[in-house]
Structure formats: structure tokens, C-alpha cells
Design a protein around this nucleic acid. Structure first.
Ligand code: MN
Ligand code: MN
Ligand code: ZN
Ligand code: ZN
Lengths: 137, 137
DNA sequence: AGTTAATTGCAACTCCGTTGCATTTTAACT
DNA sequence: AGTTAAAATGCAACGGAGTTGCAATTAACT
């Protein structure tokens, strides 16, 4: 059974053309993908709305997570850690290359802890680093 | 001379109604502001476009900086550090309260350094913390 | 006050994402 | 395999955020 199918099964999602295809695109991609990238990579076979809904489903199930980009766009990437329905616990830094524009999960780079002023509590931390990636230097 | 006027002078910006008023709104606000907040706080006296352009001017001059929000919106806040034309060097953590929704600059909380994999260089780091603020706990 | 350049308001437009609804597809059950 | 109910899809329409071109207005300087 294909990896994509396996993931769908594991999250009790029905095996539809768009879900399988979108998942395969993610599995083959090394960097995070924008909605447009997915439209293109799937050969424009699916309606924009279907892709939006597919992505939302994947987020809800903990299959992908979103990454905020500098220009207020969203990119999507597979969750490597064990995210579950309704709860993501990605704790890694995201990197955006100023040259090639690729957005990547630095899965091995944990977000450092930070000491907040008295009385503030933390539920979530996002850390996005811009710079030049190893391939573009 | 008012603080707002002083800031405009210092950055060689002409003293216009909208710029002065928008600056005053920032000076009186404790938290970061969305475009809509500014429209409202200025009493709908200015065209949306004028406010967008005013904000862009302030960003260019290093008077305000932007803060990415979880829902891909943008908030704006005064630069406290000495940002200059074309170069911001804000190095502080931003905090978004899950309860009151207020976004604030934690000017005293520096973004911790982070060790990236070999070959990656850094030009900019954003750190956005969600949680509950001191007033809402 | 008069001149010139910068700023503003308005209308139109693009881009991203969402919603309602009719049609199609999936999965479960004879 | 055929039937059926629920889920997923495509399409059209909509809404909000931000941008652009252009004519009218305003600020700065003499
Ligand atoms: Mn990631
Ligand atoms: Mn700030
Ligand atoms: Zn790169
Ligand atoms: Zn709060």
C-alpha cells in the first residue's frame, strides 16, 4: 500500500483522488508548499476550493501544519512529529531562503525557550528565520 | 511641539493631517494595531488607501514595524529602538494574547539566538509567542 | 500669494480564501 | 454486484485585504 494511502487510513480519511494526490505531492517535496504550488503540482486537476478543503482537513487531522510567510501568505508542510487530531506539537524552527524562496522545516532545530515577563504564560511559539539556505550560499 | 510632529520632522516627512493623526493613535496605544483599528481610531476620517500608504511610509522610514499574526494578518507598532530608513533592527519577541487578542511588543525580551545547521546564514528572525497576557490571567 | 511637488481620495482591480448548493463519488451494507 | 446514505467535489458567487492609476487637493518653499 502506498505511503499516501497509509496516512489516509491511519487518520480515518476516505481515499479520494484529491487527497491521495495532494499527499503524494507533499511526500515528494522537500520544501513547504503554497496553495498555488499544490494546484500546479497536481496538474490543475482539482478545483481551488477542493484543495483548500483538503488542506484544512489535513490540518485538522494533524497531517500538515502551516507556516506563516513574511508576505502574509501561508505555506504547508507535513508534520513529522506525532501530531494528532486537534493538536499540533511542532516545536521546530522554520527557515525561508531569501534567494531561492524555499520554506523549510528545520526539524532538528528546536525553538529555544524564552523567558517572558512575570505573569505571561505561553501556549504556542512560532519562530521563522530568514536567511540564505545551504544550497544557495 | 507635539511628539507626533517631532517624529515627522525627524524623518523629514511633511506634516499632514493623516500622518499626524495616525502617529498620535500609535503614541496613545499600548498594543499593536491592525489597519482596521487605525481606521476606527482615526474616526474614519481618512481613506483606506491613505492609511495603507501612510503605514508604508512609516515602515520605510523606520517609524513603525509590522508583526505577523496567526491568521495571516498584519499588525503595526512603533519602533522603540533606533530603526533607520530602510533598516529595521527590532530584536524583540512579540506576544499575542489568546484571551484579549492584543498584540504587544515585548521590548525587553530579546529573541534568543538559535544554532542553524551548517551552511545556513541568518538575516532576520521573527518570534511570535501566543499565550495569556498579564492582564488576562 | 504663487509655484511645484507631494499627498490624498476615489474607483477599479487583483488575490486569497470562504460559503451555499447541486452533482458526483466513496464506503458500508445487503 | 447492486443499493443506499453520507461524504467529498465542482462551480458560482461572495467578502476582505491590499494595490494601482489618476485627477483633485494640500504642504512646503520662495
Ligand atoms: Mn514545520
Ligand atoms: Mn515589536
Ligand atoms: Zn535557498
Ligand atoms: Zn490579554
Amino acid at each position: 500500500m502506498s505511503e499516501a494511502l497509509h496516512i489516509l487510513k491511519r487518520h480515518q480519511l476516505s481515499n479520494t483522488d484529491s487527497r491521495r494526490t495532494v499527499l503524494e505531492v507533499f511526500l515528494q517535496s522537500e520544501s513547504a508548499l503554497a496553495h498555488q504550488d499544490i494546484e500546479r503540482e497536481t496538474g490543475e486537476r482539482f478545483d481551488r476550493v477542493t484543495i483548500y478543503r483538503t488542506l484544512q482537513t489535513f490540518i485538522d487531522k494533524g497531517i500538515v501544519h502551516t507556516i506563516p510567510t513574511a508576505d502574509n501568505g501561508t505555506k504547508y508542510a507535513l508534520c513529522r512529529e506525532n501530531c494528532s487530531e486537534g493538536h499540533h506539537h511542532d516545536n521546530h524552527v522554520h527557515f525561508i531562503c531569501d534567494v531561492c524562496g524555499k520554506t523549510s522545516c528545520l526539524d532538528d532545530v528546536a525553538i529555544p525557550s524564552v523567558r517572558l515577563p512575570e505573569g505571561f504564560s505561553v501556549t504556542k511559539i512560532d519562530m521563522v528565520v530568514n536567511g540564505i539556505c545551504v544550497e544557495c550560499r
